[in-house]
Amino acid sequence: MADFLTSQQLTRRTSAAVDAAVGAGRGLGLTVTDATVLHDLFSVVVHLAPSPVVARVPTVLPPCTDLDSLTRRQQTELDVTRWLADRGTPVIPPSPLVPREPVQRDGFSMTFWQFVEEDRNKEPDYAANSESVADLHAAMRAYPGRLAFLSAAEPRFVEESLALLAERPDLIGPGDLDRARREWQVLEPLVRSRAVFEEAFPGIDLQPVHGDCPPVNIFSGVDGDLYSDFELVTLGPVEWDLAALGPDSESAYNRGARRNGMRPLDEDVLGFVNAVGMLRVIACLALAPQLPPLAEYVKPSIDRWRTMPFAGGVAG
């Protein structure tokens, strides 16, 4: 049974990630004299000052994620955001000062982004953000690159995490784990197979989507809002990007969809993505030893999951 990392171990991990980012940046020809950590949760995000470059270094990863698979995912993110930026979509773009590809160093794999100054006085407006996600979906529809179907659901991560949690009654009780496993038996075939999904939800179009709750991943820059964090970009139904956000966000998205001439959200598909999203939250409990605050952070979501229909109402 893995122990929870101590505060000293967490500090050492952050320092190691910063050192790797600084070393990689300098190796790419950047001037770095005052590296500043901007964010430290699942990734360490470092401004490589005075260069206008930000390195994002994932540090909390499932056991099933190796550096090569992480690098492939990061390259897809870079490709998609560069394509969007080139077409005028407001995204945080990859840095033009270094090659647009991930860099591995000291056991980490990292990407480099253009530094954007944050408007720290602006409070997030999640309704407005949700409405604007329809604009993002309209922009992403024409992306020509190949994307895997619902890779953002991370089925291997969910499956392995549920197995690991059988040994962690300190993180989840047996009753909750039993329900999660039974729900996964119903939902997994629809996550893993496009054909099974399309049979269950006929007429639901699939397209490139952000993959990781874009209404909460809109960055408030001093010159305007920017879409960010496309780490889980995937092919899927647009509903995936609104999973678990609730009726107000769904209504706001539908306003944006009408404005863009797109279909409204489908209630049955919302039930499906909400259920899968909740199982991903439960799977994240397996990462709590790497990130101790996570167990408390996801507790409200798990409390809400207990009140939801089994498997989102999807028939098994």
Rank of each mutant, 00 (worst) to 15 (best):
F4E: 01
L5D: 00
Q9E: 15
Q9F: 04
T14I: 03
S15Y: 10
A16H: 14
V18R: 13
V18P: 00
D19A: 15
A20M: 12
A21Q: 13
V22I: 13
V22E: 04
G25I: 10
G27Y: 10
L28F: 10
L28K: 11
L28E: 13
G29K: 10
T31H: 14
T36C: 13
V37N: 15
D40P: 07
L48K: 13
L48Q: 14
V53Q: 12
A55E: 09
T59R: 13
L61P: 05
C64G: 04
T65Q: 10
D66A: 04
S69E: 06
L70C: 08
R72K: 09
D79P: 03
V80G: 04
V80T: 07
T81F: 01
W83F: 08
R87W: 03
R87C: 06
P90A: 03
P90C: 08
V91G: 01
P93V: 00
S95A: 07
R105L: 08
G107R: 03
G107E: 05
S109C: 11
M110H: 04
D119L: 13
E123V: 14
P124E: 07
D125R: 06
S132M: 02
S132R: 15
D135C: 04
L136Y: 14
A138C: 03
R141T: 02
A142L: 06
G145M: 05
G145R: 07
L147H: 02
A148Y: 00
A153M: 11
E154W: 02
P155S: 09
R156K: 09
L164P: 00
L164C: 04
E167P: 01
D170P: 06
G173T: 04
P174A: 10
G175D: 10
R181V: 05
Q185L: 08
P189T: 07
S193C: 10
S193F: 06
S193Y: 08
R194V: 01
A195V: 11
F201V: 00
F201R: 02
G203K: 10
Q207P: 07
P208Y: 05
H210A: 03
H210L: 12
G211R: 12
P214K: 05
N217K: 02
I218H: 07
I218V: 15
S220R: 15
S220W: 08
G221M: 12
V222Y: 03
D223K: 14
D229Y: 01
L232F: 11
L232R: 13
L232N: 01
G236T: 00
G236Q: 01
G236H: 00
E239A: 00
W240E: 01
D241P: 03
L242R: 01
A243E: 11
D248G: 11
R255Q: 15
A257L: 12
N260E: 14
G261S: 12
G261Y: 09
L265I: 03
D266A: 10
D266Y: 01
L270E: 07
G271N: 09
F272H: 08
N274E: 12
G277L: 03
V281S: 05
A283H: 04
L285F: 05
L291M: 11
P292N: 08
P293C: 09
L294V: 06
V298I: 09
V298W: 10
K299P: 04
I302K: 07
D303R: 14
R304T: 12
R306A: 15
T307Q: 15
P309A: 13
P309L: 10
A311W: 05
A311S: 09
G312V: 05
G313L: 11
G313W: 07
